[in-house]
Amino acid sequence: MSSDATDANDVTAATDSTPDVAGDELLRVRNLDAGYGDLQILTDVDMDVHDGEYVTIVGPNGAGKSTLMKSVFGLTAHMGGTVTFEGEDITGLRPEEIIHEGIGYVPQNDNVFATLTVQENLEMGAYILDDVPQDALDMVFDRFPILRERRDQKAGTMSGGQQQMLAMGRALMLDPSLLLLDEPSAGLAPDLVEEMFDKIDEINDAGTAILMVEQNAKEALRRCDRGYVLANGENRYVDSGDKLLNDEQVRRDFLGG
């Protein structure tokens, strides 16, 4: 691990290089230090997501990918640096406050209410609104037709792929401008993985910016606009997905050749 780190450090300075940028700046993370309890995991991490952009975070196990995403959503202990969303400082806000800002989050595990029906799960996604937004519900049902079919089924009785779609649908109920996805393909059968990535493309095409953590690094980099490579809780590389895929060093150290 440490030899990796020294190798990588002199290759690319990750900070502030934002190539091929699409829209205006949406999310801006600067010098972020964060962790759990007293344990610091992220050190001096920078990251940007622009309007409508599709960004993935890849890196080895324990690199702090999920921690970075959770830090954006206020789920970790903040130890330094800033998180700005649409120009507003959201550093240290709690998840229930951040959700009001227009960020949706899909956790990796246990991401549906198993004992609630599909419809009730989606309703919970719009809890902060006074009424269930019918148009958002229709939009989610159109995006994931299987959910319309199974709207009265208990979420816990559905397959892993369907649960993952429900989890995304729930996060889309508030029509967020940024959707955080933590390992959306984890635990899915290979043919479903492809379908899941297609759905994410569709969501992104409809204008929602995506920030995604993925184990399946090659596929994620192929699909995204930009990728961040994280190792040991620090930025290593940032570039367009294609360039990272073709980078000799990244391939060797992080993509398994």
Partner: peptide
Amino acid sequence: KAMRAMADNEDLARVTGI
């Protein structure tokens, strides 16, 4: 429904905005 959601999965309830 929020009560049932919270009984089911408190962490998820929190990130859902309940």
